[in-house]
Simulated assay, not measured.
Amino acid sequence: MREFEALFSALAKSRFRGKFHLNGKDLQYLRDKGVPTILEHARDFIGKRLAPAFIPNDGKQTPYRGHPVFVGQHATACCCRGCLQKWHGIAAGHNLTAEEQEYVLSVLRRWLLLEIDRAGQE
């Protein structure tokens, strides 16, 4: 698992990862529900879509839109086990540990807070 400063610096250099930001609808949903509720959604998504050792549709299990967490997962390379391995050093082929799941949740939390800050500056 990577240190956040190095991770977010690397993500910022990626043209693909850098294009993901919350649109008005997702940002409003985040504001309406609040970060704690959205993070509970994220915890559920991680547990069901990312934590299993083998995911039948790995690499395609995370939609690109429809929820702030989905956008955040692509922005932070927490969208599939392949990206987790490449970007975060979390090997595929095993159930994510509680610590690894909390790490992913922390990455998403930081990204969501950065998006709130970014939207406030526009």
Rank of each mutant, 00 (worst) to 15 (best):
V104K: 01
Y29T: 09
H41Y: 11
G34R: 02
P56I: 07
V35M: 14
G93D: 00
V104T: 05
K60N: 15
L11Y: 14
Q85P: 03
L27W: 07
P63R: 10
G59W: 02
F54Y: 15
K86F: 11
W111C: 00
L39N: 07
A10I: 14
D26T: 08
K25H: 08
R49V: 04
E122K: 06
N57A: 07
L11D: 08
K19Y: 13
L108M: 00
G66D: 13
N23P: 11
A53R: 13
Q73C: 11
S106N: 08
R65T: 01
L22C: 11
A91I: 02
T97V: 03
P36L: 03
H67R: 13
D32H: 11
Q85H: 11
L50Q: 04
G82C: 15
G59C: 01
H21F: 13
F70K: 06
K13G: 14
D44M: 14
S9W: 10
L22A: 09
L84N: 01
L11G: 10
D58M: 05
C83G: 04
F8K: 09
G120I: 03
S106E: 03
F4S: 11
Y103W: 04
W87F: 15
E102Y: 03
R81C: 01
S106I: 05
L84Q: 04
D58A: 04
A42I: 07
N23K: 13
L7Q: 06
M1P: 13
D32P: 09
E100W: 05
E100P: 09
I90W: 01
K25M: 08
E115Q: 00
N57D: 04
A12P: 07
A92Q: 13
A6L: 05
Q85A: 13
Q61K: 04
A6H: 08
T37G: 07
A75N: 01
K19F: 14
Q28M: 08
L27E: 13
S9T: 15
R65F: 05
C78V: 13
S9L: 14
